[in-house]
Amino acid sequence: MTPAARIQAAIELLDTVITSARAKGAPADRIIADYFRARRYAGSKDRRAVRDLVYRAIRLCGPVPASGRAAMLAVAGQDEAVRALFDGSPHGPAPIGAGEEPANTGLAPKWLAASLRASDLGGREIAALLGRAPLDIRVNALKADRSTIALPEPGEPLPSAQGLRFASGTPVEQWEAYADGQIEVQDCGSQLIVEALPVGPGDTVIDLCAGGGGKTLALAARLGNAASLVAADTDKRRLGNLAPRAARAGAAVDHTVLLDPGQEMRALAPWAGEADHVLVDAPCSGSGTWRRSPEGRWRLDRVELGRLNLLQDHVLDLAAQLTRPGGSIAFVTCSVLDAEGPDRITAFLARHPGWHSEPLTLPLGRPRGAGIRLDPLHDGTDGFFIACLRSP
């Protein structure tokens, strides 16, 4: 591909990403992968260059751009080399027309930027949410140890017990240690959250929003397979990924439970009032993961945030039904918005008299309401909120 053709390819991809974001469809990384799967003639350098252009435009444009061309014109406005490639050459973009406007730049749409500021995040904290994330792994203590594991390249030790950090793009999933289940890709913040949970051997622990089971596997490793783990979710596809992952990791997961949205307690009835601990890694906006999925700012609006808040309250109420007297709930979101963190805890405690919040100990993060918030600027992790609730 010529340099101009790379610009045009990025424009086409951005058009698809914008349409998908508005429709709450596929994420950018999947769209890019599908695009190049159908264009195998593109070499690795072309794919990398186009991908970098796409994400550069996404990070630059706060509000949703009108088009991929407008988004790339915003990049051209800051980079004369990109601007020069709007030259009308074969397979390249048409020349920039008189009066043609680039997309608006910024950190986020105005309403969302205001919500971030109301959550006590300044410009530097918000900008850090859009930086490039490193790649963190967790060495699986069921099979290996960080101090002795042999990997193709050394990683930087993290504050988590078995965490190592590598540069973004390091092909860890191609390593033998990954195939053997000795390592898992997991952000340092997620690792620290699992380490902070008030659980111990012999406990019954329910991962209520388990997804693909990243935290379930981390719990199994932390507890040496000495707890009864129940992984539940409404997403059949993601939950189906857990069994092969657990087998590879040597992790014992006693039950995987597929839930029917709105009828969850039918499937969870055997554990009603029995769980020592319920982990609620709640569905959220993902504002804490914008380093990896910066187009998430384009997907979120006030209506969607309100829907997510209702869902977060719902899963917390389910967790309360599952928790034994004196047991606990951990509420986690990969969000830095107060609406998806402290506000949900305040609302839960108002609905459930007798419950109380209790402190957790993490080596990173700062107090936020009744919990702790992690963020990329101060902690080098994704953005998270975690709080612990204790049953009467």
Rank of each mutant, 00 (worst) to 15 (best):
T2D: 00
T2Q: 00
P3T: 05
A5P: 03
Q8E: 14
Q8H: 04
A9L: 08
I11S: 01
T16I: 09
V17F: 00
V17R: 01
I18N: 03
A23C: 02
D29R: 13
I31N: 03
F36W: 06
R37Y: 13
A38M: 14
R40Y: 06
Y41G: 15
G43S: 08
S44N: 14
S44D: 15
K45A: 15
A49K: 01
R51G: 10
D52L: 10
V54L: 05
Y55G: 00
I58K: 04
R59L: 10
A66R: 14
R69Q: 11
M72C: 02
A74Q: 04
A84M: 12
A84S: 15
A84H: 12
F86V: 08
F86E: 09
G92R: 01
E100D: 02
P102H: 12
A108C: 08
P109T: 13
L112F: 14
A118G: 15
D120G: 12
D120Q: 15
L121R: 12
G123M: 10
K143V: 02
I149S: 02
E153Q: 15
P154H: 12
G155A: 12
S168P: 04
T170D: 05
V172L: 15
E173K: 15
E176W: 10
E176D: 15
A177M: 10
Q182I: 07
I183D: 11
V185A: 02
V185G: 01
L192R: 01
I193W: 07
E195P: 06
A196M: 04
G200T: 13
G202P: 05
G202Y: 04
V205S: 01
D207A: 02
A220I: 04
G224S: 09
G224A: 10
A226K: 15
L229G: 03
A231P: 05
A232E: 00
N241W: 14
G250T: 12
D254V: 13
L258A: 12
G262T: 03
R266Y: 13
R266S: 14
R266P: 09
L268G: 10
A275Q: 03
D276E: 12
H277V: 02
P283A: 06
C284M: 03
G286A: 05
G288D: 07
G296E: 11
W298L: 11
R299M: 11
D301P: 06
V303C: 08
E304D: 13
G306H: 03
L311Y: 08
Q312S: 12
L316C: 09
L316N: 06
R324W: 00
R324S: 01
G326R: 01
S328Q: 14
I329R: 00
F331P: 00
V332E: 04
S335D: 07
V336D: 06
A339M: 07
P342C: 11
P342N: 06
R344N: 09
I345M: 03
L349V: 02
R351Q: 07
G354Y: 01
P359E: 09
P359T: 05
P363R: 07
P367M: 08
P367C: 09
R368L: 12
R368D: 05
A370D: 11
D379R: 06
G380N: 01
I386Q: 04
I386Y: 05
